[in-house]
Simulated assay, not measured.
Amino acid sequence: MRKMGIKDIAALSGVSPATVSRTLRNPELVNKDTRKKVMKAVKESGYRPNRFGSSLRTRQSGNIVVVMPDITHQVNAGIIRAIESEAQKHGYSVLLGDTQGLIERERHYADMVNSGQADGILLFTPRLPFDVDPDQPLLKQLPPLVSGNETIPVEGLCRVSVNNTAGARAATEYLLSLGHRRIAAVLGASDAPSNQERLDGYHQAMDEAGLQVDPQWIVAGDYSTDSGMAAMEKLLKLRQRPTAVFCFNDDMAIGALNVLHQYGFAIPQDISVMGFDDIRYAALMRPALTTIHQPLEDIGRAAMQLLLEQLNGRQPKNNYVELPFELIVRQSTGPVPLQGESE
Rank of each mutant, 00 (worst) to 15 (best):
98 D>K: 01
315 Q>V: 15
92 Y>N: 08
153 P>Q: 11
75 V>N: 00
46 G>N: 08
130 F>P: 00
147 S>V: 11
160 V>E: 04
127 R>V: 13
292 I>M: 11
122 L>V: 15
151 T>R: 07
58 T>L: 14
221 G>F: 01
75 V>G: 00
26 N>D: 13
244 A>P: 09
338 L>A: 13
135 D>M: 03
195 N>Y: 03
63 N>E: 03
25 R>E: 07
212 Q>A: 15
287 P>K: 10
163 N>D: 15
54 S>N: 05
101 G>V: 14
72 T>K: 05
249 N>H: 07
72 T>R: 11
171 A>R: 02
207 D>A: 14
341 E>H: 10
335 P>T: 07
307 L>Y: 02
151 T>L: 03
316 P>A: 08
82 A>R: 02
1 M>K: 12
245 V>M: 05
228 G>A: 02
86 E>Q: 10
265 F>E: 12
201 G>Q: 13
133 D>M: 06
245 V>R: 08
338 L>P: 00
85 S>R: 08
55 S>V: 15
20 V>Q: 02
120 G>S: 09
319 N>K: 13
102 L>I: 15
144 P>I: 10
145 L>E: 02
73 H>V: 05
254 I>P: 15
164 N>F: 04
17 P>V: 06
147 S>H: 03
267 I>L: 12
247 C>W: 01
193 P>A: 08
330 R>T: 06
176 L>D: 11
72 T>Y: 02
57 R>C: 02
296 L>Q: 15
341 E>L: 10
204 Q>I: 03
175 L>H: 07
225 T>I: 12
301 R>K: 14
172 T>I: 05
191 D>G: 11
185 A>P: 00
208 E>C: 06
256 A>S: 13
339 Q>T: 13
192 A>S: 14
63 N>I: 06
265 F>A: 09
319 N>C: 13
25 R>C: 07
332 S>N: 04
184 A>Y: 01
317 K>I: 06
107 R>C: 13
333 T>P: 03
264 G>Q: 10
154 V>A: 00
116 G>E: 10
72 T>A: 15
16 S>T: 15
102 L>N: 12
230 A>L: 13
209 A>M: 06
87 A>T: 07
21 S>G: 14
77 A>M: 12
88 Q>W: 04
159 R>E: 02
245 V>L: 05
189 A>W: 00
283 A>E: 11
173 E>Y: 06
162 V>E: 06
44 E>I: 05
155 E>S: 12
183 I>G: 09
158 C>P: 00
53 G>L: 02
282 A>V: 12
31 N>Q: 11
324 P>I: 03
217 W>Q: 08
114 N>Q: 11
75 V>L: 13
154 V>E: 00
257 L>C: 09
221 G>R: 01
71 I>D: 01
288 A>G: 15
235 L>Q: 04
33 D>F: 01
166 A>F: 00
336 V>A: 08
121 I>C: 07
306 L>H: 06
175 L>P: 00
6 I>E: 05
25 R>G: 07
285 M>Q: 14
174 Y>Q: 05
214 D>K: 08
